[in-house]
Amino acid sequence: MNLGSKHIPIFFFLLFLVGAIIILVLVPEFQEGVIGAFTLIASGNPEVVEITLRSIYISGTATALAVVWSVPVGLFVGLKDFFGKRFFKGLFNALIGIPTVTLGLVLYLMFSSTGPFGSLNLFLSPLGVALGQAILIAPIMVSFTASAVEAVEPDIKDLARTLGASEVEAAFAVLKESTAGVSLAIVGSFNRAIAELGIALMIGQNIRGQTRVLTTTIAMETTQGEIALSIALAIILLAVVLSINLFINLLQRRFK
């Protein structure tokens, strides 16, 4: 096409916009939802604000816990050659697809008061949900970090070593070069955590004032027939994800 490849994103954006307008025109509930979302945000409904902040807090904690364990593992997998490396990578890639309900059920059996970790009181607690989400997103972070590191690894690491850097310094040099990929891994994992339902429902059980987050509220309001409210909450969820992504993007540009 004459327009050139740099215009392709704009085409996709327009396509998305047209799709959104068609849905908006065809489905009256969606119009109510959009109006409802803006009314909820404008009125500062304390319950909606609380639920939104709790969602960010729980999934933020999950992401932090996953980062401290998974980014190093991803770095290790990306940098080192070891026996069974391909199997290990394949395993993590496969674990990305674990159904959240199944993981939630397994974790419930662990956290249940008759289960092996029953005495920790993690069932029905925000920390329990955060731990579950951390386990859910760990494979995404490991796989994406490993790929990002592998993409820059050979030249940078060798160069750093040739220049006399220690292994630690070389690893940090590689990490610095792959910032974009690693932050994509982190942001993508956060998005997955905040948008998942199975674990939040199974471990948290949607308890008002304790473990009620955006996705469990959406599920509950749908069950209760509050369709417009569900759509409004979904729009808030998307807005949260979008603003956090934009924020990280700006941060990246600033420190490039």
Binding site: L124, Q205, N206, I207, R208, G209, Q210, M220
Partner: peptide, 8 residues
């Protein structure tokens, strides 16, 4: 007493 309702 805080009530935790599990609705299932």
């Amino acid at each position: 007493i805080d009530i935790y309702f599990i609705s299932v």
